[in-house]
Amino acid sequence: MGTAGDAYDNAMCESFFGTLEAELLSREHFATHEQARQRIFWFLEGWYNVRRLHSSIGYRSPLEFENINVKRQTVSPCGLPTGGQRHGRERRPAARPWTTRDSTLNGG
């Protein structure tokens, strides 16, 4: 989200509420507040967060994206997923010379 006053301020929220209004609220009439609450909950948990296509993950639904990536993960001997982890020497952090104090610098 952007900072106050710039062109992208609240863009993510405005996009979400625009989708909610266009896909649900403009198409249905609710008799009670409870009926509206339940329908909005279904919209969020049953479609928007699960089945809606996301441009950031290649226009796939989150379920489809997770199913594809589960197949790519390997499992360690203790049963934990190891996808994306480095192995061997690359796992150790690189040397950080700026974290050690050099006695010849800064008055020693």
Rank of each mutant, 00 (worst) to 15 (best):
L20V: 08
A4S: 13
T32A: 04
M1F: 06
P77T: 03
E64T: 10
P77H: 02
G46M: 00
P62Y: 00
Q35S: 10
V50Q: 13
L80Y: 12
G58T: 03
G2P: 02
R86P: 02
Q85K: 09
R89D: 07
E64V: 08
E23A: 00
R91G: 04
D6G: 01
R101C: 12
F16Q: 01
G84S: 04
S61D: 04
R39E: 12
R27C: 03
H87L: 13
E28F: 07
P77V: 07
S56L: 08
F30N: 09
E45C: 09
E66H: 12
T82N: 03
D9G: 00
M1N: 13
P62W: 00
S56W: 01
Q38R: 15
H87S: 14
E14T: 04
A7Q: 05
S61T: 10
K71N: 06
T99K: 14
A7T: 03
I68K: 08
Y8L: 11
T82L: 04
D6E: 15
P97E: 05
R91L: 13
A11K: 08
W47F: 02
E64G: 04
L24N: 03
T3P: 13
R52S: 05
S26Q: 10
F16M: 05
A94P: 07
L80R: 14
G107E: 02
T3N: 14
H33P: 06
G79M: 00
F41S: 07
L53I: 05
D6M: 08
P62T: 02
T82K: 09
R52K: 04
S15Q: 10
L80T: 07
R60P: 05
H29I: 12
E90S: 11
A7M: 02
G46V: 01
S55Q: 05
D102R: 12
V50Y: 01
P77W: 10
S26T: 08
R51A: 08
R89N: 00
T3R: 15
L24S: 07
E90Y: 06
M1P: 11
E90Q: 09
N10V: 04
G79C: 02
Y48W: 08
R37F: 13
Q38D: 15
Y48N: 09
R37I: 14
T19P: 05
T74L: 11
E66L: 12
H87C: 06
G5L: 09
A95F: 13
A94E: 14
S61C: 02
G88W: 00
P81I: 08
S55G: 10
